[in-house]
């Protein structure tokens, strides 16, 4: 079998995963795309191992390890996503913009709504959305983390 077939397939799968990572909005879908990319690499590893006939079968061993690590990664990743969702009420990546250069206006609306969504107990209506301090969200986030 030509090595080019698995290699090209791996490249295309990798780039598909890449597109998913960059384009998807939902964090869980991003994780799926990461899995795709990892699988593309695994395919490459197996193909090259078979081609090289390595006595130690380093490629296959590494593939196994990668699969294991990917499983761990998906577990941790999902836990983080769930935590973010619980705290922020969203798992949309483009809403998690705390790294942004704050003009204090562009992000405040988001943060205010997030705070509204997460911090209000059941019975109390969001009576004063304007005066909602953002630090309640922060303290809660820190405490939970």
């Amino acid at each position: 079998m030509h090595l080019a077939y698995p290699a090209v397939l791996a490249v295309l799968l990798f780039c598909t995963g890449l597109y998913g990572v960059l384009a998807r909005r939902n964090a869980i879908l991003v994780l799926m795309s990461v899995e795709l990319m990892l699988n593309a690499v695994n395919l490459n590893l197996v193909a090259f191992d078979v081609w090289l006939r390595d006595t130690l079968h380093a490629g296959q061993a590494l593939t196994l390890f990668t699969i294991t690590i990917a499983a761990a990664e998906i577990g941790i990743g999902l836990a983080i996503v769930l935590l973010v969702h619980r705290n922020r009420g969203t798992s949309h990546i483009d809403r998690l913009r705390d790294l942004a250069e704050t003009d204090r206006t562009a992000t405040d609306s988001d943060e205010a709504t997030v705070a509204d969504a997460t911090d209000n107990p059941v019975g109390s209506p969001a009576g004063d959305p304007a005066g909602r301090p953002t630090d309640t969200r922060l303290t809660r986030g820190e405490a939970t983390a």
Binding site: L18, V21, L22, I93, D94, L96, R97, L99, A100, E101
Partner: peptide, 17 residues
């Protein structure tokens, strides 16, 4: 450059790649 600091991780990653 500040305008590029949107806080959107996907933008960062896209530009990096």
């Amino acid at each position: 450059v500040r305008r590029a600091q949107t806080g959107n991780v996907q933008t960062y990653l896209g530009l990096l790649l």
